[in-house]
Amino acid sequence: MNFNLGISTGSSTPIYRQITEQVRLAVATGRLAVGDQLPSVRALAEELVLNPNTVARAYTDLAREGLLESRAGRGVFVTRKRKVFTREEGRRRLEPLLDGLIGEAMAMDFTQEDLRAAFEKKLAQWKQTRGGDRNHE
C-alpha cells in the first residue's frame, strides 16, 4: 500500500473532510486497492495528532459511501469499489476543476489546440499506467 495521509490545520476544509477526500482520491487513483487495510481510528488519530472522534467521523462517512468497511476485531478495509458520486454530482464537481485548468492554461497563453493535445497525451499516459477505464465496474 502506497498511501500516506496528511492533514493541515488552518485550512478552509475541515479536517475530517481532508481525510475523506484523500482516501477517496487514493481509491479512485488506485493507490489504495480493494482489500487494503487502513490504520485503526485510534492509530490514525495518534499518528496525525487528532481527536479520535474526527477520524471516526471520516471513516463513518467513507463507510456510508461504501468505500470502507470496518470488520469487527480485524480493522478497517477498503471494500469493493463503488461509484462514489452520481453522474450528476460528478459532473457538478468536475466543472470547477475544468474551469480552473482551462483558466490557468489560457493565462499561460496556451491555445485551445495546445491544451487539447496536452490533455489527450495525458489521458493516454493514464491509460497505460493504470489500465484506463477503471471507473466502470
Partner: peptide, 24 residues
C-alpha cells in the same frame, strides 16, 4: 489526545490556539 483513550474522561480547556482546537 492520550487522555481521550478513556471515553468517560472530559477535558475543558481555554486557549487562543485555533490549530490546537481544530485538532482536539
Amino acid at each position: 489526545i492520550y487522555l481521550t483513550r478513556r471515553s468517560d474522561r472530559t477535558i475543558f480547556f481555554s486557549t487562543h490556539q485555533l490549530p490546537d482546537v481544530e485538532r482536539v
